[in-house]
């Protein structure tokens, strides 16, 4: 009861402060709001992105170019956040050895051969669907420059394909395809790829993540296309990490850190 009273007070205070500020806002959907068009006397960041970013990077998807190039430093640490979350979950949950719980794993192959037909439809469907999902995931990763998509979205889809395997058969079946050792490695390699693009630029004498200077390494004509290609590279790195950690979070949460059988 006390917590409800406290909650009501906190909500009332916070909510009224926020609503008090709303009347001062530019109207919803106003193209000339400061956020969209800047304030007089200073150059608008948003307008710069809309007008200039295609010239800078030759990437028509503005969200991708801002995400992976202009604010690439943010995005690298966003990937690090995912990586850190994965590591934190392993550190908290992972139980090595079986810690008292009996082994329950009987793989689907066993149940098939044992005549358990209840999962045949699900299992067969998943086997057909998973390659399609994975192909689509690769498309989303690779096509982030031109349509909605990119490393995070594609990585989540790719991670989901492993989770579907784990759901339809069991966790071991999915772990056979992406083992614990490998998903930790994959996650680290993803960020390494990202950071390597940045460090290469440093080695070539520019600032961290200045992709334009990678032109001779990527065999492109002009720094713009070098930026575009580098963005694809870092998106692939992001996808590695996201895939690995998404699956790893599921695997650890569903099996309480035992990595046995799961749900």
């Amino acid at each position: 009861m006390l917590s409800k009273i406290f909650a009501s007070i906190a909500v009332a205070i916070t909510g009224s402060i926020l609503l008090y500020g709303v009347s001062d806002f530019p109207a919803f959907g106003d193209p000339n709001s400061p956020a969209s068009a800047g304030v007089p006397g200073s150059e608008s960041v948003s307008l710069y992105f809309i007008e200039e970013s295609y010239k800078d990077t030759k990437v028509p998807n503005l969200v991708t170019s801002v995400l992976a190039d202009y604010r690439g430093y943010d995005t690298m640490f966003e990937t690090v956040v995912i990586f850190a979350a994965g590591m934190a979950i392993f550190a908290i949950l992972r139980v090595v050895g079986n810690d008292g719980e009996e082994k329950r794993a009987t793989s689907l192959e066993d149940s098939f051969t044992n005549g358990d037909h209840s999962r045949i439809i699900v299992g067969t469907t998943v086997r057909i669907v998973v390659p399609v999902i994975q192909l689509f995931a690769l498309y989303v990763i690779a096509h982030g420059h031109h349509s909605p998509g990119g490393g995070f979205q594609g990585g989540v889809i790719l991670g989901a394909s492993f989770i579907i395997i784990a759901l339809s058969e069991n966790l071991n079946a999915a772990l056979r395809r992406l083992s614990e050792q490998n998903y930790v490695r994959l996650a680290a390699i993803g960020i390494l790829i990202y950071a390597a693009f940045g460090v290469m630029a440093q080695i070539l004498g520019k600032n961290f993540l200045d992709y334009g200077v990678l032109e001779p390494l990527l065999f492109t004509d002009g720094p713009e296309m070098a930026r575009s290609h580098s963005m694809l590279g870092v998106e692939v790195g992001v996808a590695f990490t996201v895939t690995a950690i998404m699956f790893a979070i599921y695997a650890n949460l569903s099996s309480r850190g035992q990595l046995e059988k799961g749900l």
């Binding site: 150059e43 190039d69 202009y70 690439g72 430093y73 600032n207 961290f208 200045d210």
Partner: peptide, 15 residues
């Protein structure tokens, strides 16, 4: 001052 990615001007487009 360090501008990541070399995005210095206009101020605020990069990090």
């Amino acid at each position: 001052n360090y501008f990541v990615g070399g995005w210095e001007k206009p101020l605020g487009i990069g990090i």
